[in-house]
Amino acid sequence: MSDSELEKYYGNREKAILAFNNMILEEAEKQDVPLLERLKYLSILSANLDEFFMIRISGLKAMMLEEQTTAIKNKHPVKTQQLIHELYEEVQSLHARQYACLNKEILPALNEQGIILLKPDAWTPEVYQYCEALFQNEIAPLLTPIAVFENSSNVFTAIGNLSIHAAFWFKEETNDMQDLVPSLVFIQFPKNCKRFYKIAELKNTYVMLDDIIITFCDTFYPGKEITDKILFKITRDADISVDEFTNDDFVSAMEDVLLSRQLSLPLRMTCTGTSEQLINYIAQIFNLHDNEIFHFDGPLDLKGFLFLYEAIGDEHLKFPKNKQKDLHIKPHEIWDILKREDILLHFP
């Protein structure tokens, strides 16, 4: 039987992975699943899809390059390129349902339960002052703005894998010092900052790091007017291996692999914001095409929402915990019982 005849009996591995993640999303969409568990499923989905791009899509991209070389020689069509296009479309569809579930169902339902994510337009003067002090005292000292000038070559290597960045554009100025004023600035979210900050006076009320940075980032350049702001995250190729047999220093080799992951081929950009011009400009910097841009109507990197799942103690919004059960079996009896039946000792 030829390879073409065998193909109909086998599913595609990457599509099977997306089918599994579709089942995770279906759990999040179920109305009878506890609310925080639904949020947890959305978080798991985001983490899985990041890994899907870093490992599976990166492998397909490498395969596509090999096929393109062969296709030029043998004039064969490039099958992997079409597969990658289909996978990107499927992931776009998954994310659309994911954020529809988050914005239309889960966040409103959490709000009804008294679990509130305060957006900047809902900040009271007291909350605004709290966030401003938080930014100045705890967050701003950890931020390093990256100025992007024309013909700048530092941008590609400065944006690491899976790090959320704020990007903002200055209003153009016409003066003799124009060349010294950056037109675009990136700010990486610090790794050692919390994603959510609780308002002490209000029960289960949080503000997001995303909103704090976007609201107060203009304080880095007083007197300058910012015209556009977005948040974005670059997912890079992480399918980089180390040969433990030929590398004498395995630890050093692993350090090189981790560094390579931060600077490897960009595979997609996820972003949130209203400036299409700025989004397209950043995508162009990383040589990303339209289908590799994922524009979200909500916070980036939902796996960070696992913090809320763990921080909120409302047990009625989670699956009931399994209670430990004593077997009441004498040690010398257990082997006789096992001959007759199985005993469930642990369930993950």
Score class of each variant (00 low, 15 high):
L110Y: 03
L110W: 03
V148F: 03
E51R: 13
I115Y: 07
L118S: 13
R56P: 11
T124F: 13
L83D: 06
M54R: 11
I146F: 09
L134Y: 08
P108W: 13
I44R: 06
H85L: 15
T69W: 02
I115C: 06
H165G: 02
N151F: 12
I159T: 04
A96L: 12
N48M: 08
A109I: 00
D121T: 12
P108S: 10
Y130W: 06
V91C: 01
S163F: 12
L65K: 09
I164V: 14
S58N: 02
L45T: 06
P145Y: 04
N137I: 07
V155M: 04
N151K: 08
E86R: 08
L118F: 03
A166S: 13
N161Q: 06
L65I: 10
N161S: 14
W123T: 10
V78G: 01
Y130E: 12
N111Q: 13
V91W: 00
T80F: 08
M63H: 10
L60W: 03
E138Q: 10
N48P: 00
F149P: 01
L83F: 02
A100D: 14
P141R: 09
C101H: 02
N111S: 14
N103C: 07
F168W: 05
A100L: 10
K79G: 03
E51L: 12
Y130G: 01
I164M: 05
M64K: 13
L87Y: 04
T157A: 14
P141L: 10
L143C: 15
A147D: 04
F149H: 12
E86K: 11
K75P: 00
L60F: 07
K75L: 11
I159P: 04
E105Y: 03
A158D: 09
L118H: 08
L60C: 10
E138F: 06
T157R: 12
S153H: 10
E105R: 02
I44H: 07
I106C: 10
P120D: 08
I57V: 14
K73D: 10
Y128D: 14
